[in-house]
Simulated assay, not measured.
Amino acid sequence: MSAIPPHLSYTRDHEWLLDGVVGITAFAASSLGDIVYVQLPDVGAAVTAGVPCGEIESTKSVSDLVAPADGVVVEVNPLVAAEPGLLNEDPYERGWLFRISVSGTPDLLDASAYAALVG
């Protein structure tokens, strides 16, 4: 597993959040296996922390994509929709999923707490 970036906030559902940008962790991508399809929320959709807002499908399973914070989707990453494998290759940079205008942030984990969770 790759290093856990110290500048991100994390959920217990293995999503990360930074300045409204949402993605999944390398731990989640590795656990899922080869990701073949991603369903992202629509621009303008309201999302609620802890509530599924999309799906990630791999050769192993289908998993819910859970919003890490309350807000409204302002942008989605078209590269991930076209190339879902980016989540396996680069989950913290090119594989970001969507951006929200954050209106409320739940109890997120810092990098060390997330490392303890997955450790």
Rank of each mutant, 00 (worst) to 15 (best):
M1V: 07
I4M: 04
P6I: 03
H7C: 00
L8M: 13
S9V: 03
S9E: 14
S9Y: 07
Y10E: 08
R12W: 03
H14I: 08
E15R: 01
W16N: 08
V22A: 00
G23F: 02
I24V: 07
T25Y: 02
T25R: 03
A26W: 02
A28H: 05
A29C: 06
S31G: 09
S31H: 04
L32Q: 01
G33Q: 02
D34F: 05
D34N: 09
V38F: 09
Q39T: 12
L40T: 10
P41S: 13
P41K: 14
P41W: 11
D42L: 12
D42R: 14
A45Y: 08
G50K: 06
V51F: 08
C53M: 12
G54F: 10
G54S: 12
E55A: 13
I56D: 10
E57K: 08
S58R: 04
S58D: 06
T59K: 05
T59S: 11
T59Y: 03
T59I: 14
K60H: 04
K60W: 05
S61N: 04
S63W: 05
S63A: 15
D64Q: 01
L65G: 02
V66T: 14
A67R: 11
P68R: 10
P68S: 12
D70I: 13
V73C: 12
V73R: 11
E75H: 12
N77T: 09
V80H: 11
A81E: 15
E83K: 14
P84R: 12
G85I: 09
L87R: 00
L87M: 01
E89N: 08
E89H: 04
P91R: 06
P91C: 06
Y92G: 00
G95V: 01
G95F: 00
W96M: 03
W96I: 02
F98R: 01
S101V: 07
V102T: 15
V102E: 15
V102Q: 11
T105N: 08
P106C: 10
P106S: 15
D107F: 03
L108S: 12
D110P: 07
A111K: 05
A115I: 03
A115V: 03
A116H: 08
A116I: 02
V118I: 15
